[in-house]
Design a protein around this nucleic acid. Structure first.
Length: 111
DNA sequence: ACCATGACGTTTC
DNA sequence: CGAAACGCCATGG
């Protein structure tokens, strides 16, 4: 049975759930989410799941998810480059050169 | 089942 | 934190 509740398939759903829990004005990293999922080494899968989350039915603050350095690595996957930065700055997050400033302060861990 | 890809991370230089 | 290499795990062909 695939409903092991902690295996493939639910991976996407788990990522969506955590992303939806990100507070306003805060950001998190792929590694942090992966760790919360129990698969610390699958940080890449987190990004993969976010890319799959482009479905219009899923409204998640994906822009609040950046890489470990605070770089907006996913901005290229939006309608246009800068969209992600725009959304982040709108929440009070300062972004400079595609990088989140004071990343440690706005960082939120899904623990 | 094997190989290639990917919005990453850690280690090493 | 510059760049490069390895690891990592899930998805698709």
């Amino acid at each position: 049975m695939k409903n092991d509740n902690h295996r493939v398939g639910n991976f996407y759903q788990r990522v969506y759930d955590i992303v939806a829990l990100i507070p306003h004005g805060k950001v998190t990293t792929y590694g942090a989410i992966a760790r919360a999922l129990g698969t610390a080494g699958s940080a890449r899968m987190v990004g993969w799941a976010l890319m799959a989350a482009h479905s219009p039915d899923i409204n998640l603050p994906i822009y609040r998810v950046v890489n470990r350095r605070g770089l907006l690595t996913g901005m290229h996957h939006y309608d246009y480059p800068g969209k992600m930065q725009e959304l982040l700055e709108r929440e009070g997050i300062r972004v400079r050169e595609n990088q989140v400033q004071e990343f440690e302060k706005v960082f939120w861990e899904p623990s």
